[in-house]
């Protein structure tokens, strides 16, 4: 069993962790740990970050050899700060993630990814090896391709259980190993149950929705998830286009910046482009409606909701906004809204 490296953000390239001989361990905000984050962070802060910190404060984590933080948003920056207090002995690396996509930012991020790779190899006393990184990327890309195939099946027909099954695969890649996730994915490419009708096709997006049981609930509430865009679903399994650049780290930077459309990253030549991307994905997946699940206090998403709403309205695509902590605990509260939304959409 490899030693584990903790991380919290979808911009963390898992192949680098595995190439250095570690196992990835994404810290999901699921825990019965008591609410203690308020001792270190403001109460009006993203519940994802606070719950992850609760886990650290309550020692509700496996043994970690180090933590990788990305300063993707203010809350993530503060989490890295608080980690120093909560776990002063943990080795930590904080990567600077540019907000805009352009040649300079890609150069900068590629250096940051290289710094991460070298740090991880050093933490494991392993000689730095670009070959190992390339091998891991190849494996990761196989997983990404399998995930894409499953997503394609999801968007065409409603197969009960497929969405939660996909989430289990992705969670395995995030918290265990790409190899195991790959085996699971190859078994899932053929749906276990036949296609069914009678559900409302909905595209869901937002920050994170990681519990497979949530997707089963959605089905109970008459929803057919045609596609999803969360940092715990498609945004996490980013295909690395190795042909994008001769430098492997720049290829990674290009792939993560361009394919991982978290609201915090923008195409500066097209301000507000996230709204068009949401419309496009909803249409491509044959959805009749769109639901956003946002974490409370998540400025990057909340600030973009008005333009996303406008863009969807323009296309006459019904839109539902749900705010919470994106765990099963808060999902019950949303039942009436989701059911009413599917009743409104029809089949």
């Amino acid at each position: 069993m490899n030693k584990k490296i903790g991380f919290t953000c979808a911009y963390t390239p898992v192949p680098l962790i595995e190439a250095a001989g570690f196992s990835p361990f994404r810290i999901f905000p699921e825990s019965k740990a008591p609410d203690q984050a308020g001792h270190l962070l403001h109460d009006n802060l993203c519940p994802h970050v606070k719950k992850v910190l609760d886990r650290a404060l309550a020692d509700d984590l496996p043994e970690l050899e180090g933590m990788v933080f990305i300063n993707s948003c203010d809350s993530m920056r503060r989490l890295a700060d608080a980690w120093h207090e909560a776990k002063p002995d943990d080795p930590i690396i904080l990567l600077d993630l540019p907000s805009g996509i352009n040649s300079l930012s890609l150069d900068f991020l590629s250096k940051e990814y290289e710094r991460l790779a070298k740090t991880l190899f050093k933490w494991n006393n392993e000689p730095f090896s670009t070959e190992k990184i390339k091998d891991e990327i190849a494996k990761w890309n196989l997983l990404a391709a399998s995930v894409k195939k499953i997503e394609g099946i999801m968007s065409r027909n409603y197969f009960p259980g497929i969405a939660s099954g996909l989430q289990e695969i992705i969670n395995t890649a995030a918290t265990d190993s790409t190899d195991k996730a790959l085996v699971m994915a190859q078994n899932k490419i053929e749906p276990e149950k036949p296609a069914k009708g009678g559900q409302s096709p909905v595209f869901v997006f937002g920050n994170l929705l990681f519990d497979p049981k949530v997707y089963d609930l959605f089905e109970e509430w008459n929803m057919h998830v045609t596609a999803s865009d969360f940092c715990t679903t498609s945004r996490f399994v980013t295909q690395v286009d190795t042909k994008a650049d001769d430098n492997i780290f720049r290829s990674m930077a290009i792939s993560y910046m361009e394919q991982t459309p978290c609201a915090r990253t923008m195409d500066t030549t097209k301000p507000g482009n996230i709204a068009q991307k949401i419309v496009q994905r909803a249409k491509e997946s044959n959805a009749k409606g769109v639901i956003v699940f946002t974490l409370k206090f998540c400025d990057p998403y909340l600030a973009r909701i008005p333009m996303i709403r406008q863009a969807l309205q323009k296309e006459s695509i019904p839109f539902l906004m749900l705010e919470g902590d994106c765990t099963m605990g808060s999902m019950g509260q949303q039942q009436t809204r989701i059911e009413a939304f599917t009743e409104m959409l029809g089949v």
């Binding site: 019904p318 509260q333 009436t336 009743e343 409104m344």
Partner: peptide
């Protein structure tokens, strides 16, 4: 009489 949009405070 079909619902085309709704908002809820609970």
């Amino acid at each position: 009489g079909n619902v085309v949009d709704f908002a809820m405070n609970d």
